[in-house]
Design a protein around this nucleic acid. Structure first.
Lengths: 339, 339
DNA sequence: CGTTTTCCTGGTACGCTTACCATATTACAA
DNA sequence: TTGTAATATGGTAAGCGTACCAGGAAAACG
């Protein structure tokens, strides 16, 4: 457990010179450097980053708080974050809240205690306090994926409203009029925005929004399953389902299978968020795909720009487009149904 | 960015008293405590764990170095580690080496720099240097899953030799005589031990070990795929395959499917490591299941015992048993083959 | 040749918290 | 009354690097 002072003594230099060798900063004579490096090797010296960070006030670490690490969408976002951070020499501490504000709060404190240089936050709710808390610690924060109304902060997200609008129009164009919306939680902007887009498309098409067809649940397989069961009991039965995220879609698929219904023959199904090609044997879901990796990357780059003072002073809101990927699950144009 | 001094000043006490309040250590008068807590709330004070750890020489963090985080087996091990650590108030830094010694070396340095209190290491090779390096930094280490010959260290692992022996006996009992071994890398103890167990079972049964049926590759799907392709070209063709881990088994399944062969009708298949129930629609692989979660947990508990000085002075080697789970893939008793 | 710039090295103090030691008051038994 | 233990609080230094400020030597420049 040698310290920088031990190395300095052995190499016959001052600690600061050792520091310069380690960090490649300032001027060091080649021979001096060699002596120092030999001393480092001899003593098996490993710098103490705690001391370094304490003094330099930089930890080279970012915090990433997200809501469900078991979802491939978030894994992909995380990889984008990780890659961008790594390119800039930063580490990432990953925190999983499971959509719980209490967990989120706990992790925020942990990250502040650990003196992370910046935070990427997928907020569990639309509350402004978490963002204000981070900012009160003089730590830059970028909000990811979701909006927080009335907050002053950088945001990188996708256009959920537009994606849902387009997906719904696609179903309408195929002749569907009774489309059940299996949404995520109220109070989460992505869930709300997707309902808004769905509504707008219906209204534009002159289809009245039947509120008994709009279900709010969680972004989970179980919730997708039960919302689907409920949707199937509504009369007249919907001819299409809109799953607000990928897990809800999988839950819906299971519920439909258990109900003996085929997709798309008996019901059409579309969803938000694609699944990674590696995880699916035979992709057949029609989806609005969000550029998850790119979202993570751009958010991180924005955060790093803030850290280095390169970002423009005004808060940014970067909105990435979704891409409609049409596959089998949305089905063909419906034949004229008897009234 | 208030410091402990700011809080102390506001509460009219010394910094050390604030420290006692935060850490619930030593004596603090109830009224003093209340004043301090009020000051903390007023200032939005968050302790700096860098400074804390620098002084206390404890970070409350463990390092976990493993070889393939994409493999459910390791995810399960990691969860065992995480749970045990969390129970004791420790954090875990997870490092993924992809079986690369260079990556492993990099991560070891990072962990030492971060002053982790202990390391759980799944070594990428049988080299003793990594273990010695950690020990040279006065950091306890527990080696996980694999043996390192000639090393002085704690080890928690499974009985790969015995598991392989039993799996092979099962195939022998079903009448198989030509069993291809699709192994992991040479130099990795689990891979070698499984080959040993396989050999022992064959020899006990009086079946000569045909070295053209023993393949060494990687613990990956791709490797399993190509080893299977090779195994199918051997004449006479093996009647059973032994996959040395779960990814190799999946690769083998794909290769067999692509070759138009059915399991178990055309070939029997057994493997090491089960897959989590949640990931498999219809479990049908016969496997030697290792108690992955328990391995992670016990290794962590041993490490924590070392940290607290509770562990017995001598290095421990904890060997957990594997469990043979018989399903369809191993098939029925072979009918008498003409020959 | 004097001056500026580049190169190279060091001293001191500081970042923030806690370990260690010391002090003081109250409580209670001897 | 004195001694001992429990309660309560503080001073000082240390943990380990680096920021900041300085200084001197060599090289480049006018």
């Amino acid at each position: 457990m040698a310290t920088i002072r031990d190395v300095a003594k052995r190499a016959g230099v001052a600690p600061i010179t050792v520091s310069r060798v380690i960090n490649n900063s300032g001027y060091v004579n080649e021979q001096t450097r060699a002596r120092v490096e030999a001393a480092i090797a001899d003593l098996g010296y490993v710098p103490n980053v705690l001391a370094r960070s304490l003094r330099s006030r930089r930890t080279g670490t970012l915090g990433l708080i997200l809501t469900d690490i078991s979802n491939p969408f978030w894994t992909t976002v995380a990889r984008g974050v990780e890659d961008a951070a790594s390119d800039a020499g930063f580490n990432v501490i990953l925190c999983n809240t499971d959509e719980s504000e209490i967990e989120q709060d706990k992790y925020l404190h942990v990250l502040m205690q650990k003196q992370v240089d910046g935070v990427l936050l997928v907020p569990a709710s639309s509350a402004v306090e978490p963002v204000k808390f981070i900012q009160s610690q003089n730590t830059p924060v970028v909000v990811l994926d979701r909006r927080i109304p009335n907050s002053q902060t950088d945001v990188v997200r996708c256009d959920s409203e537009d994606g849902a609008y387009q997906l719904t129009r696609l179903l309408l164009a195929l002749g569907h009029r009774r489309i059940a919306m299996l949404s995520g939680p109220r109070g989460v902007s992505t869930a709300e925005d997707r309902v808004s887009g769905y509504r707008r498309a219906l209204q534009e098409a002159g289809v009245a929004v039947d509120t008994t067809l709009v279900f709010y649940g969680k972004f989970s397989l179980e919730s997708g399953y039960s919302m689907t069961q409920q949707a199937l009991t509504v009369t007249p039965r919907p001819s299409a389902l809109f799953a607000s995220n990928n897990f809800i879609a999988i839950g819906a698929l299971r519920a439909l299978r258990d109900a003996g219904l085929r997709v798309p023959e008996d019901l059409a199904l579309v969803g938000f968020d694609d699944l990674p090609a590696a995880l699916v044997v035979d992709p057949f879901l029609t989806v609005a795909a969000q550029p998850a990796y790119e979202m993570g990357r751009q958010a991180t780059e924005l955060l790093l720009a803030r850290l280095s003072g390169e970002a423009p002073p005004a808060y940014q809101e970067i909105i990435l487009p979704t891409e409609i990927v049409t596959r089998q699950s949305s089905g063909q144009i419906l034949e004229q149904q008897g009234g």
